[in-house]
Design a protein around this nucleic acid. Structure first.
Lengths: 219, 219
DNA sequence: TCGCACCGTTAACCTTTTATTAATTTTTTA
DNA sequence: TAAAAAATTAATAAAAGGTTAACGGTGCGA
């Protein structure tokens, strides 16, 4: 797990970072909230953000608001101010949890775990699945009726997801296609597969054509 | 922390070294800048370099320039000359900080800490990234829709950053361009790429034109 | 063996995409 | 300021992709 932190108290940031590292949580602290802002825009691999609201000379809630404009990253806010307005406004602006300062690092760790667990969504199973031994491809849990050539072409594409495959490569690979057949053959086969998948001709979902190259499968 | 130092005043070097050691900073001084140069080429475990510009019989700025050719190590320059030209030129050549002599060791320590902390920040990933196997170029983490010719031109430019590339070279290199097409073709393609990148026409950020030559990509 | 169904292949035709050229405007340089 | 270079726009011809129908070879069962 990797989390971002916006905290101007470097010593505190250091301590927390050290502690969390022991539990497999990698912390990246940003002293300057504006730098943090642009970093968060780019980096997509953070699992959460710990935001200190009591930043000097600026409103931490402002930062929170700005981040929520482009990201739904889980955010834990903390504040040294004892009044509750920070908490209320913060949660209203889209923070996911609140921790009053000072707090136990252990507490922070627990909240982080909780928040990211909540966020983790179950990986949905793919629409297209190959059953090699049966020589079947299932589409949305139902077997697709395919001719041998169609089966081989689709299999090859599925086994190389997101990679544009040249027509030539398909001709070469598939047993049921003769190497010296016209590349147009592939087009016809693809057209038929698309039809069986119920693709929208204008806007295919699974098999995209890559101009000048061939086709690619996107899961 | 371990830092290199290029300083011909051995006594001063000694004093600084003694002082910094108390704060856990290990100093390695090189009297001879040329020896330093080759040492820095090899050793990769320095966290910073302290470079004295007022070296006898040679230009410290020359050394700075040479180091920047192969390393992006944080460099603090210092000078006994009171005029500001050293500072300005030094920072322009890629130094990270400047300290006028004489200075307090404490000051040096603070700058070192600051500079290495600043450096620890996550290297921001480039806006434009080529995913060769996918035949895609991503711009700010999103795939850019490009025609084959556009893709090849942009790829070539990205793969030769900061180098002005002649139109002819592009025509020659790109599969989807005919060698005997007019060089104007390139201009049109560049224009379209710029448009897709949302470049400011007056002030392009990524693809600059080099008058009389062609274009260059700056990361 | 005949006929039939299956399926890879090709041909023909239509649609979409795009490299290229030409024409025009804007910017830069000498 | 004039000339050269680059940017932009629009138009077009060629290429690539999509689709459909028909052909022909293979194998299987009657």
């Amino acid at each position: 797990m990797k989390v971002a932190m916006i905290e101007d108290d470097i010593e505190l940031a250091e301590i927390l970072s050290e502690y969390l590292k022991k539990y497999g949580i990698e912390v990246e602290n940003y002293e300057d909230p504006f730098i943090a802002l642009s970093a968060l825009r780019i980096a997509k691999d953070y699992d959460a953000l710990i935001l200190d609201l009591t930043l000097p000379g600026m409103d931490g809630l402002e930062i929170l608001k700005k981040i929520r404009e482009f990201s739904d990253l889980p955010i834990i806010i903390s504040s040294a101010r004892s009044d509750l307005s920070d908490k209320v406004i913060g949660l209203e602006l889209g923070a996911d949890d609140y921790l009053p300062k000072p707090y136990d690092p252990k507490e922070l760790e627990a909240r982080l775990k909780a928040i990211t667990r909540r966020r983790a969504k179950p990986p949905k199973e793919p629409d297209l699945k190959i059953y090699k031994h049966r020589r079947e491809i299932h589409f949305k849990n139902k077997p697709l009726p395919l001719t041998p050539a169609e089966f081989e072409v689709l299999s090859y594409l599925i086994e190389h997801p997101n990679q544009p495959i040249e027509r030539e490569e398909l001709l070469y690979t598939c047993e049921n296609l003769s190497e010296n057949a016209s590349e147009k053959t592939i087009d016809v086969i693809i057209s038929r597969i698309r039809h069986k998948l119920g693709e929208d001709p204008k806007n295919p979902r699974y098999i995209l054509s890559v101009r000048g190259i061939g086709y690619k499968f996107v899961p």
